[in-house]
Amino acid sequence: MKTATIVALAGLLAAAPPALAHHSYSMFDNMKEVKLVGAVKEFQWTNPHVWIQVVVDEPNGGKTEWSVEGAGLNTLIRQGWNRNIIKAGEKVTVTIHPMRNGTNGGALIRIYMPDGRVLGEPLPANQAAK
């Protein structure tokens, strides 16, 4: 997690509930937010969850791949997502609730797309105007 900015966000849960899933989200640390800056390697547009594989450039020149779990297709379709909404190669910033066990993965909070769109949980009111 060297590249990750870790912020304790005690009030984050008040902003919006995590995406509901077919499994417990207790493996994620909902008190923490990690920011990943990198490129989309693969967008898995699937049930029971969508996955975004993000390759992050490390300061030492290396690369790490992160697995970011989103909600399920049905939920996201109803929020306006589709199979082409995220494409491999796109440079993105992703915020996640990280895995508690230190694995390079987490639950999607938001993904900031290169064209300025922000997908995922709605931004807090004090950030929405940015």
């Binding site: 919006a16 509930p17 995590p18 995406a19 509901l20 899933a21 077919h22 499994h23 417990s24 989200y25 029971p48 909600a71 399920g72 049905n74 939920t75 996201l76 929020q79 949980e121």
Partner: peptide, 10 residues
């Protein structure tokens, strides 16, 4: 979420 079948719906 799991057993509750509280699925999806973010």
């Amino acid at each position: 979420a799991g057993v509750l079948a509280l699925l999806g719906a973010a």
